[in-house]
Design a protein around this nucleic acid. Structure first.
Lengths: 239, 239
DNA sequence: CGCAACTTTGACTTTACTCAAGACGAGTGG
DNA sequence: CCACTCGTCTTGAGTAAAGTCAAAGTTGCG
């Protein structure tokens, strides 16, 4: 059930048997949600964090003019809001992008982990710091990369993150979201994303169609997106 | 010496006398740096975190074409890289923007805090999650706000953050950085930042000149920047 | 004083946005 | 089985925002 989550943690740190047991003991209710279900509204007080078991979840902020900026996309194995453990009230919304299965982890259990498992605490702290590293890379995309480069970058990033949990390989992966969703991640209009994706397709680099990404030339994709996976910490230092 | 830091923590959480003592005990070497000194290069292994006592520090990433995106600016009282405690190697650079005084906090001391002070651990964890909240707000600026709105937003954000540590009021504050630095935060060219600042000045909202921000109309500044301080968690929930 | 870095402004270019219309595709009901 | 619908995708034409290039003005500092 939480294998993807353990996979994600173990990809970076040595997790002891007692820690795995503590993680399993922290899992509460399992829930299924349809696509586009809002899970968290800004400001509401939370008493649990949501672990993604299946599906894709986005965090986003809406502006006055109806514009939306997605600040992060979560894949299976990720916590969608481990940061809510310390923040309690979030500054953004959380929504499913696809049908999802999630596990609720009560904050009380996380508090217990901070009291009894300092190393696991540091591993979970690392996890929120990794989220922040992804935010930083997105800031770079939004601030400095061209539309085509942003598109290539996100396709490369999601491929890499999904590969860690065994849901992507070098050639393709499922990404059952719309170009509109993608445009909200990239700070572009859907029309412009469409044109940029066409360019990637015409250049023989990658194709995004009917919920699936087919990569013809991964090296080119990562080069166009200036994608360097270092910020995803594929190999972490023991803590 | 670390009063601004304690001020920043106490603005959000109750910090016990034993915790204050643990914080003071964690402070190592004090260092002074000139402006524009690079403190951390991407990938180098760190054994301490840097606490800002005086001055401004930026975190940034450089792209191949010589473009730079600043991902965060730190004010006195902030850790510039508390996240390096768990990440060890950073995905970005850290540089002083102005002459700075900093305190080095060995990671070993932070590890000790995670072993002996679970509540203080959660407070520091909160602190890195607050950094991530700022990253998210910057993603929104970079992705969706116009140039003028971005300029107004950052001036409002820095005012608010500096006020928390007693270095700004409603009317003005020192910001001894160049328009070039600002443009690297905002994902704009320096020329365009210059034009946007002129617009803010001509509209009687705010003036940024010779290292100082003078605010004629704070309400208008925050409205143009769509600035809502909720993401800075001025009032946090106990953890 | 004189240099260097930064600021300011103008003229022009590029990138991305807006608006609009037609095509496509999955799911629905007759 | 087919027409219909809704949301999404695609493309074209025109517009707006921000970038580029260049030059002059300003400021701080040695």
């Amino acid at each position: 059930m939480i294998e993807a989550h353990l996979m994600r943690l173990k990809a970076r740190h040595a997790i002891g048997a007692d820690e795995v047991a503590a993680i399993r003991a922290s899992i509460g209710e399992i829930r299924d949600y349809p696509a586009r279900r809002i899970l968290v509204e800004p400001g509401e007080e939370l008493s649990f964090s949501t672990l993604v078991l299946k599906g894709l979840i986005s965090r986003y902020k809406d502006l006055s003019e109806g514009q939306r900026q997605v600040t992060q996309v979560h894949v299976p194995g990720d916590f969608a809001d481990l940061h809510s453990f310390t923040l309690k009230r979030l500054d953004h919304s959380i929504m499913t992008l696809t049908p999802c299965k999630v596990a609720l982890v009560p904050h009380a259990k996380l508090t217990e982990i901070t009291e009894r498992f300092p190393h696991l605490t540091r591993v979970y702290w690392f996890s929120t710091n990794l989220d922040a590293a992804i935010h930083r890379e997105w800031e770079v995309s939004l601030g400095r990369r061209t539309a085509i480069s942003r598109c290539a970058h996100i396709l490369a990033e999601l491929r890499f993150r999904l590969e860690i949990v065994g849901m992507a390989d070098k050639r393709s992966y499922d990404l059952p979201i719309s170009q509109i969703d993608l445009s909200e991640c990239l700070g572009l209009t859907a029309v412009h994303v469409n044109r940029s994706l066409r360019k990637l397709r015409e250049d023989g680099i990658a194709t995004f169609r009917t919920g699936r990404v087919e990569i013809q030339d991964l090296a080119a994709l990562e080069e166009v997106g200036e994608f360097d996976p270092a910020y995803l910490y594929p190999t972490a230092v023991p803590i």
